[in-house]
């Protein structure tokens, strides 16, 4: 078995995959990739020209959600991280996988602009990011009021994995956590998942 992650340390999408690999305790090799356009060789692996890219022997995958979901399906024999055999849990997990890839893109773009571009992110993109966090906050508030602790089901899943980076890194784009107490709790709990690792922008304490 040989897993290779083409990885940029500062990229929130790559962080999703690093979190999934760590939660599954999977051996892997990381190939560091700089910020900026991908080389032609990497573009051949992912025509979209984006990270993360994962190679599992001959299989090539791209996109944080797709890779995390694949890893959970292939390498978690108990199917806890992606409870795909239960149609209800599967459907609920899919909501948050597509949310992570679509709705939270605004948070990711805002952060990238704030960190690497001369112009600050537009008010519109910040508002879109805050709207997405609000959807998550209302969901986790309802979960708490009905005894739930994670986005889906009774234990952490790939849904929590793909949602964590955007929220934990929101301060990079100037979005504070004080409007999201339920997410703050969830993020604190998330840090206790065995194998949890930080990245630049997420304080390393506790």
């Amino acid at each position: 078995m040989s897993i290779v992650l083409y990885d940029n340390e500062l990229d929130d999408g790559c962080y999703k995959v690093r979190l999934m690999l760590a939660a599954l305790h999977l051996e892997h090799t990381r190939v560091p990739v700089g910020t900026g356009p991908l080389t032609p060789q990497l573009r051949r692996l992912n025509p979209r020209g984006t990270l993360p890219i994962l190679a599992d022997n001959d299989l090539i995958l791209h996109g944080g959600e797709a890779i995390a979901a694949f890893l959970a399906r292939r390498y978690d024999p108990l199917d806890r991280w992606f409870p795909a055999d239960d149609p209800v849990l599967f459907g609920q997990t899919m909501i948050w996988l597509s949310f992570g890839a679509e709705a939270l893109r605004s948070a990711s773009v805002a952060r990238r602009q704030a960190m690497f571009e001369v112009e600050a992110p537009s008010a519109r993109i910040i508002a879109a990011a805050r709207t997405s966090f609000r959807v998550m906050e209302d969901h986790m508030t309802a979960r708490r009021l009905t005894g739930g602790r994670w986005f889906v089901g009774e234990r952490p899943t790939v849904a929590d994995i793909v949602l964590f980076p955007a929220f934990a890194l929101s301060g990079d784009a100037g979005i504070e956590h004080d409007a999201y107490p339920a997410l703050r709790h969830w993020a604190r709990r998330f840090r206790t998942i065995p194998g949890f690792r930080t990245m630049p922008g997420i304080p390393d304490y506790y």
Binding site: E176, H177, D178, P181, R184, H185, R188
Partner: peptide, 16 residues
Amino acid sequence: VALAADIDPGTANGTR
């Protein structure tokens, strides 16, 4: 400034 139940012992939270 917060719900009492939302500030766990041993934690710090920023607000305004």
